[in-house]
Design a protein around this nucleic acid. Structure first.
Lengths: 140, 140
DNA sequence: GTGTTTGCAAAGAATTTGCAACGAA
DNA sequence: TTCGTTGCAAATTCTTTGCAAACAC
């Protein structure tokens, strides 16, 4: 099964494998991009009607601690993503979608740690502006 | 007066110069680092007792639009800073203070815009980890 | 004078908490 | 069996809003 890597990560971090957590992993499989708690809540509710938003938040915390998810905040809401590799997130202020961009090697956490004599646990690069599609768009 | 540059920026953006806004500028002058709305509120209250938190938020919005302040979010609260030059903010998870770091030229907004064919209006690099002081600290 | 800003109280949005019942290991 | 997890409701925290009075220009 395609999610077994994530299941392993949960197990390694001493989390139990519950049906709710498996349904969230299903969501990740089908949605490689960026999502809010409510997006996942709405999706999981279809198969697991008793689940609550609080449980989704709870599960996200476990998954972040397991190394499955990363998160960042925009305008008071937290966005999650399963791309845990260092990268830049561009939030398009026109179409309100995200686009990922590679980061130059010299801003990767390890490089920053080494260069500055600090310990960088997480690094998030958040760009706000206009995405490729909307920039190329003539009618704006 | 040392704040005249900020006053000019407010004027250029068509904002009026009110006593409350001047008191917030006073705060900036004495606090070059990172602060929350409540920090400024508590400080300004001393000279302007009728000010409210809502007004501070209101003033911050005007100052962001004037190019005086930048902001970013951590754990559900918004932090503000008057350093509007591109840089990385390290949030130390041990001492809960911030430390600023220069960014390599290839992650400056203009470079990213050019390289990726997008328009980058703001770029925020947020590092979480352990600051220089706490990393060098033996007892942890 | 005119339109902006302030102060106040109340609303809003997102996330967390407490706790009893449930369930994975 | 045991302790972590879920579901539910309520609470919290941060930020915004509506509106009348005050004020900058």
């Amino acid at each position: 099964m395609i999610n077994s890597q994530y299941v392993d990560l949960l197990r390694k971090a001493n989390y139990k494998i519950t049906p709710q957590r498996l349904r969230v992993l299903d969501y990740l499989e089908g949605h490689p991009g960026h999502f809010k708690a409510e997006d996942v809540y709405n999706h999981v509710k279809a198969n697991e009607p008793s689940i609550t938003l609080a449980t989704v938040y709870n599960i996200f915390r476990a998954m972040i601690r397991s190394g499955i998810l990363d998160s960042f905040e925009i305008n008071g809401t937290t966005w999650f993503e399963s791309n845990t590799q260092p990268h830049a997130n561009l939030y398009c202020e026109k179409c309100h979608k995200f686009e990922d961009f590679e980061l130059p090697a010299n801003v990767l956490p390890d490089r920053l740690s080494a260069e500055y004599g600090i310990h960088v646990r997480t690094a998030s690069v958040l760009l706000k502006g206009t995405c490729r599609a909307c920039t190329g768009d003539s009618h704006n």
